[in-house]
Amino acid sequence: MHTDLPLLFTFHFYLFGVLAVASALLFVTRKSPVSAALWLVNVMFCLAAEYVMLDAHFVGVVQILVYAGAIMVVFVFVVMLLNLGHPSETSDFRSKGTRLAAGAVALLLAAEVLTLMRQPWPQLASPDVPDNVVRPVAQTLFTEYLLAFEVTSVLLLVAIIGAVTLAKRGTQG
């Protein structure tokens, strides 16, 4: 499916991989938990792009919805609840160099979009892609792994009850 533009595809694959690794390095070296969490969100977005390029479209969407959308929000919520973030680091504007770099990236992206808009779209995706990408996952999930899928719901219920009980006990004691 990607044989039309192998160079562009390879470039973006490596780009998102390097971005993910760089964001992960920035994530473990940040002092403030809030900026650490935001860099981790960046890692997860890059990984979602990698999943899509590896023909795992459904996993990529679920990655953004569940990881970046739900789990990291819980993390940031707990950081705010415990008042751990440093306001001077999170609410202030960045330094001049960072703003210049952000502007350069914005210009680069705008140039890329303009270049892509000028050219006619190549036939990237064949029409049968959504069919043979998502359907096998659902078929395997709901036939071969059906028991594990059902047990997962019990696991989530236990986790909900456990989390509520643990978090509630602190207010009484």
Binding site: I71, I160, G162, A163, T165
Partner: peptide, 9 residues
Amino acid sequence: AAEAAVGLA
């Protein structure tokens, strides 16, 4: 997700 919920609690 379950681990994050219980761990954060």
